[in-house]
Design a binder for these strands. Sequence first.
DNA 1: ATCATTATCTGACTTTAGTCAGATAAATAT
DNA 2: ATATTTATCTGACTAAAGTCAGATAATGAT
Lengths: 293, 293
Amino acid sequence: MISDIQQIRSFNREVTRRIGVLHHQFLGRNRPVGESRLLFEIGTVGKEVRALRTKLGLDSGYVSRLLRSLEKQGLVETVAAPRDARARVARLTLSGLKERQELDRRSDDAATSLLTPLDKNQRHRLLAAMAEVERLLGVGDLKISKEPADSPLANWCLAQYYAFLEDRFEEGYDPAQGQRTDSKEFSPPEGVFLVARRGMEPVGCGALKSAQPGIGEIKRLWVAKSTRGLGLGQQLLSALEKEARLLGMSAIRLDTNRSLTEAKALYLKNGYVEVQRFNDDPYPDFFFEKTLT
Amino acid sequence: MISDIQQIRSFNREVTRRIGVLHHQFLGRNRPVGESRLLFEIGTVGKEVRALRTKLGLDSGYVSRLLRSLEKQGLVETVAAPRDARARVARLTLSGLKERQELDRRSDDAATSLLTPLDKNQRHRLLAAMAEVERLLGVGDLKISKEPADSPLANWCLAQYYAFLEDRFEEGYDPAQGQRTDSKEFSPPEGVFLVARRGMEPVGCGALKSAQPGIGEIKRLWVAKSTRGLGLGQQLLSALEKEARLLGMSAIRLDTNRSLTEAKALYLKNGYVEVQRFNDDPYPDFFFEKTLT
DNA sequence: ATCATTATCTGACTTTAGTCAGATAAATAT
DNA sequence: ATATTTATCTGACTAAAGTCAGATAATGAT
């Protein structure tokens, strides 16, 4: 029987080898990898040089030299950044865009070539397994942190949350119909707003407010589709309960819609018990409460 | 909805990036990658330089130089090959072995570090998904070819096949008890022996012999555990039927044990129909025949 | 106005990863 | 015995990838 560690090492070896070969075959035509990476990273609308540097993790001098080389090839032009004339923005020229498109096309071809030997069922299995590996490898850098409840990040998460509800609720969802909450209620010292990130990307959120003295209420618990099944909902819930304890709350209540079966299961698993309806919000069907110990 | 190609590209990007970082953190301490690869490939018992060259796909001069560098560091020594004084064998010295062990340990640590953020269930899912990806990516280089039925390769496959039967049959399996077949029967012009490989590694086999004039018999159909679920059994069966047609056979018969449910399903799916027992071999429970068109 | 900081660029350098054309010596074929 | 082939090595070369120490110019802080 192959051990867990052997399985991982074998995966690492085989998969990187295979993808490396693929990359070489399809992309490694004539341009050094550094230049191709840069061409890609600049994107269709251009990007500041400092952004390129941090994103690719390269030395400033090195990036500069790569840009000069791409400029000489007529693929890139750099102009001063609009607000800060020290910084520069690199943009693709017309032929740079064409070149990037070509790289993009080849990258697609490389991806396609992995599917061609497979039948329909096998393709489906491969894609599912790839998604699973990618998701699970991402668990390591899930981080939960407090954010100002009125920050662009928090608002972005809320927009995702509302879109999700709109999609999931049989009756649709209109934020204006729901119970209105001022972002101040989710701010210290009354409450808190947590955002979960994978790397830089926000993938979940949750908010705590004070419902009555000593009783907290959890709202806006959202987990991005790409991150479901990784226990992030549980992590957020635990983190919110911890915050509630720190705020001296002795109980937490929350409500949920009948369509959100995973959420209901999560609450039950965490010792929440069903109670009488405690608001007249039209969306929730179930009301829960838990005493914090 | 993320497209298939986007999913694959995202997988390629994320997984290679992540494994690359890991590799760098754990292994990329102070030695160039080329030297580490060589250190690894030499193995604990030493290896001929030409083998190193072909295995790693490197230029002869380059390998030579890498070996000199490792020699200077006291990690490797080269001696003339026992039978051919032109060739040389590279062997690890004591400190070379230690160094390799250290690399091995770090590689294990790197693998382990992927598992640590996961709970038991997630670990299981990650490992399963990795195995699935690895297997399915390997489908592309499955190759079936004729082999001499008495070659070491064929015998290796047969040994695997017998071990599999021993493991699978309720009553165990002893090759000496089964119907005896001379390897000549599986050789042209009477029959054929096919071996399936993934890359270099043999992962399946199947044999065809002449049972009666114009009637072929398929024996020794084996698919390695690591390759099951990829349709290799089907490929081997189709290839054997094709060979039978080329040999002018008008029908094929075969037998199988009740424990080999996948095999039975495969035969039924391919139009084989159950017939009367046609031998007194103690192992088979079912007997099939198919008319070739 | 002055000073420190930030963003980029340039020149000079290094290491890594190779390639290629012989040179050398042993083995094999004739 | 001689010629050819094979396996390795050495010297001379190149390209890619990156590092580091200033130089320069714009910005922000005091």
